[in-house]
Structures are given as C-alpha cells and as structure tokens.
Design a binder for these strands. Structure first.
Lengths: 164, 164
DNA sequence: TTTAATTTTTAGACTAATCTAACAAATTCT
DNA sequence: AGAATTTGTTAGATTAGTCTAAAAATTAAA
C-alpha cells in the first residue's frame, strides 16, 4: 500500500486547490502557483507527489482536480484552520492578520482530537443566545485590558458547587 | 549580519539541550541524540548550524552549551509549550499524551503575540481562587459530555449587560 | 599502559521542497 | 493560418535535515 501521509506543504497545496475551485470552478497550475507563492515548476512537482498519493487528478496540460480523498483532506484542514482562527480572534482577541498567519501554521500541527474539542469549545463560546459574548469572556477581556480580575458575579460563581 | 532565523527542527534541538542541562548539568551529543531520536551525526550537523547562528557553544569532542541567546530561545519555546499544554489539557480536556504531542508541534507555529494572550488566558482560567475550575469551564465540560448547554445561572449571565 | 568500549566526527548518499532556465504546448491576436 | 504570448513541463542545481558506515578521539578496563 502506497504511503498516503502528507507533509504540511502538501496539505497546503490541497487546501489551496480546494479554495481556488470554490472561486473559479476550474483550477490551473498557475492559479496554485500564485495562490501559494511558489514557481509553477514547484507546483508541478507537488502535483506529481499528490497524484501519486491519490489526492489529485492531473493530466499533462490539463486542469487540476481533487479526488474525493483530496477533498476530504482539504476540508479537514480548512475546518481546523477555521476553528483555530475563530479561537484566536474571538477568545484571545488576536488581530485578524496574525491570527490568520498563526492558524495557517497551526492547522498542520493539531490532531483531530484536539480539533474536535476546540470546535466544540467554540460552539460553546459562540452558540450562546443572541450571538453575545458569554460573561466570562467579557471578564477575560477585562482582565487582559486591566490586569485585574473582574469583581462581582463571576467571582462568586467561580467558587460554587456542582453541575446543573 | 548572519541569519539567525531557526527552523522548527533547530528549535527542537535548543529545547532539548535546555531540558537536558536541567537534568544533567552537562550535555553531550549522545544525550541530545537519544532525547530527540536522531543519530549523533545528525546532532553534529545541527550543532554546526546552531553554533554558526550563535545559539550554542560546542568544540570538537566537548560538551554542548547554550549561549545566552540560545537559552532565551529555548526558554521562549518551552513557555509556549507549557501554555499550549495547559490549555489543551485544562480547557479542552485532551489527554496528556496527545496534548503533549500537539503542543510539541504547535509550539513552533504560534506567534509571540498569541503566546502571550494564551498565557494570560490560562492565568485567568487557573488563577481563580482555590485552584478550582471556574464555573463556565465546568459548563463546557458538561457540554462536551452531554452535548447540552448547562441550564441556570450561566445561561442568564450570558445574556447580561456591561462590564464590571 | 595497552586494549577494549564508547562517543564523536566525517564523508557520502538520500528525500523533500524549492529555484532557474530552457523547452513544449496551448491560447490569443492579428 | 501564423506569430506572439501565456501557460505548463522538464532538467538540473540548491538547501535542510536525515541516514549509514567508517574513521578518529576519548574514556574505561584489564
């Protein structure tokens, strides 16, 4: 059985191809080259690797397509990226630029298990009624700004008893 | 001016050297080799790179030492690792094994800015009186377990008004 | 102090990912 | 259709990090 494991770089190619297909419906070598910022000869080499592993279909001078497996991988990575980005900006308050950069690197480092917990965490954080921040998150924002823990309610709740 | 930028791999070497020095007071090529899991010829090559960049002192057949800059970098990475590990296990509830693996990879991907916010977040989470989990975190644990949002207090607090 | 064992270093090969530069195919424009 | 331009491919070089295997230095043992 061929080795299907992917490096971060190869994952980036899949991700880029998926993103391009959403915009353009058809993906050429040049698009990928521009999107990732490498020469098209590098894209070519990457495509050879990726089609060898069964993640893309590509015939000489033709368009580039993801196989179902390729789409799955690309989707997973994109989901990781999204969850990380949301966490970094919503919870930690990192600005979009840096949050994005960090998410791009971290998306390759995070396990599926961590991803799924993180995604649930973000549901928990965001899913609260009316799209408002939960109170504890406001508390954290306050802590960041002032270095001081919020007084009052949160404080008391923090030292309470059991589960609902 | 020489290039002082480090790859993830080189950062790992610095981290390992720092950790070994804490245990043994003196660090040899072989220790590093075992700790990282590469052959000593690889360690040798890495040390050449690292001393070229000014992060380690190493003379033929001698012990390996970090320069002050090397210690600083190692310390930074270790701090990132610690913050990530704490977050993954305390907040997301990932088991130590996977949390550790993930932290080892993420520590190279996270910016200083994200690190410092994450560290503050963990202070905020952990620093609450008596080392008890804050109520919202229990709420999240409950959500993870049951898929249901906790009723009662948290719910109400989530839809409240302003800052403390 | 010689010998043996361990450790370190060197030399050379390999893989992944990139680049440049030359060449080939496809497209576009008169 | 034929020329010009764009796009894609190939070949060969480069860099980082690893490996194996052999040689050199150090340390330990007899």
């Amino acid at each position: 059985m061929r080795d299907r494991k992917l490096s971060s770089n190869m994952e980036d190619y899949l991700e880029a191809i998926a993103a391009l297909k959403k915009e353009n419906d058809v993906v050429r070598v040049r698009d990928i080259s521009q999107s990732i910022g490498v020469k098209s000869s590098s894209v070519n080499a990457a495509l050879k690797t990726l089609s060898g592993k069964g993640y893309v279909d590509h015939e000489r001078y033709g368009y580039v397509k993801l196989t179902p497996d390729g789409e799955e991988v690309a989707g997973n990575i994109q989901s990781k990226h999204d969850a990380l980005l949301k966490f970094l900006s919503t919870v930690l308050g990192i600005n979009k630029g840096i949050a994005s950069e960090d998410a791009c690197k971290m998306e390759h480092a995070i396990s599926s298990q961590t991803f799924s917990k993180l995604a649930k965490f973000m549901q928990f954080v965001e899913g609260d009624l009316n799209g408002k921040k939960p109170e504890w998150l406001k508390g954290f924002n306050y802590y960041i700004k002032t270095g001081k823990r919020p007084k009052c309610k949160m404080r008391e709740l923090a030292t309470e008893k059991k589960e609902p």
